[in-house]
Amino acid sequence: MNSVLIQAGLAVGLLILGYLFGTIAEKRHYKKIRQREASSAHLPVIASRYPPEDRIYEQRLVRGEVVISSDYFKGFLAGLVNFFGGRVTPFESLLDRARREAILRMKERASEQGAAYVFNIKFDTTRIATGRLAAMEVLAYGTAMVPSAETGPTLDDAVGGMLLNNSDAMTTNTQI
């Protein structure tokens, strides 16, 4: 009898803790996401397979990934919703956060390299099994389009070159 009470108490305690910490973490995360989205708005992410032809770009693969865990309260709530059917909003917000975070990380890597666009963004979402509760991995990847100097790059520069201070190397070279 006693052990049943202890278990019930523990479950309620975890629910409350999960709710408090989870809600605080989610609010804080959304605030950060909005700030970073605003500050990286100059770098458009485009879901197109066709690269722009207005000038010469170098292409580089960039990725962003995040593994995000749900909390005890979300898990419980999702269980309830699952029973009655309908939108599982606790997990919707979880995946929304993860996806936006992954895009932001990808954009950060792209802008470090001086990209003007990220093209052909693709997502990959996987459930990572950790115990009973859900943890999801979201991967976002795309091609960072890094503008070359006006004269246009050689194949060598695109293949082996770093963008850093190689603007003088961007001359037409037809040794191929």
């Binding site: 803790l17 910490f21 995360h29 995040v66 995000i68 865990s69 991995e137």
Partner: peptide, 25 residues
Amino acid sequence: DIAASFKNFFGGELKGYTELLADSR
């Protein structure tokens, strides 16, 4: 894994797993 299962109660990013998957990729 144990650290991650604790984190599971409170939610949030599991940094260890993020790194693991990034390295593997």
